[in-house]
């Protein structure tokens, strides 16, 4: 080996060692960070496979009234129109996800957080809501009001 080659070999070996050191430190850091990130992300909450939910009873819902109910992990709202028709929607406001309510005096659905108004079709009529409320299917069996997600 010529003296020149030896001089060149030295920095190469050094570079090799520091590459090894760098990558193993990187590997250690990654093997700590990866589990941490996965840990911080919560596991998917056990989404109750809600097919149909008993939202309430006709007897407690006279025409021109409404009530919220639990639909899986989220609130829903069931209203009886002044005409006596039963309709159900998601109660999550499409603006910033507050829970909406039925306003007897206005005779439509209203969100208290930012004064959003929805018609009894769930369509926004005033205020900031950008989209209609999700509509659910309603089946009335005797006194019971059953609500399910719309098919299709």
């Amino acid at each position: 080996m010529s003296p020149n080659a030896a001089a060149e070999a030295k920095p190469t070996r050094r570079a090799w060692l520091s590459w090894l050191l760098g990558t193993s430190l990187g590997a250690v850091a990654l093997s700590i960070l990866y589990p941490l990130v996965r840990y911080v992300l919560p596991p998917p909450s056990a989404e109750s496979q809600t097919g149909r939910v008993l939202a309430g009873r006709r007897s407690e819902l006279p025409p021109g009234s409404g009530k919220t109910f639990r639909f899986g992990a989220k609130p829903g709202i069931v209203v009886a129109t002044p005409g006596g028709e039963i309709r159900a929607f998601s109660a999550v406001c499409t603006h910033l996800a507050c829970t909406v309510q039925y306003r007897k005096d206005l005779q439509h659905i209203w969100c208290a957080c930012h004064d959003g108004h929805y018609s009894l079709e769930g369509v926004p009529i005033a205020g900031p809501p950008p989209r209609p409320l999700e509509r659910y299917d309603v089946a009335v069996k005797g006194d019971e009001i059953w609500v399910s997600r719309q098919q299709g």
Binding site: P35, L36, R38, Y39, L41, P42, P43
Partner: peptide, 9 residues
């Protein structure tokens, strides 16, 4: 049991 790497932490 449910959280990823929860057993490890």
């Amino acid at each position: 049991t449910r959280v990823e790497f929860g057993w490890l932490v």
